[in-house]
Amino acid sequence: MLIKTIFSGFGGQGVLSMGYIFAYAAMVDGKNTTYLPSYGAEVRGGTANCTVAISDEEIASPVASSPEFVVVMNNPSLFRFQNVVHSGGIMFLNSSMIEARPIRGDIELFEIPANDIAKGLGNEKVVNMVMLGFFIKKTGLVSRDGVEKALGDAFSLKGKAIVTLNKKAFMEGHTFD
């Protein structure tokens, strides 16, 4: 089973690390995975996105034609990616930042006020982990152990407090209903 996900938002929302943690967790789970980020000056302040593919088999193309899942963190991302989601696919929407809703009727929509939840934790920067927790709860694509390990490894240089905060944010998203 090959599943592709696009994570998108503006630079600074932690879109790339969201995808990275997800891909890393998939690797920990023993799945094949590819992580393809947008890069260069565009990711600073502009729109950033990354594509993560995970599969039990070898992954042919890391580029997604029509991803099963799309995570949108801001308005421009919604407009850019709502048409590419596979029919029957799911969109994860950050309702703190996005007023509009997709016009397509053939995709499912899950909403979470990720920024508000992050603010509640005292640090809006962890908005990405809130969203990731929510995304993984709903999709069940990777294990929680995998994410724990990924978070620990990815933020190890930034200190224990940061790891703990990110794990907490992840759990907030994971338990959101």
Binding site: Y20, A23, N32, T34, L36, Y39, I59, P62
Partner: peptide, 10 residues
């Protein structure tokens, strides 16, 4: 190319 340089795989 830039894509291979930037992408990540195990």
């Amino acid at each position: 190319d830039g894509m291979l340089g930037q992408m990540m795989e195990p």
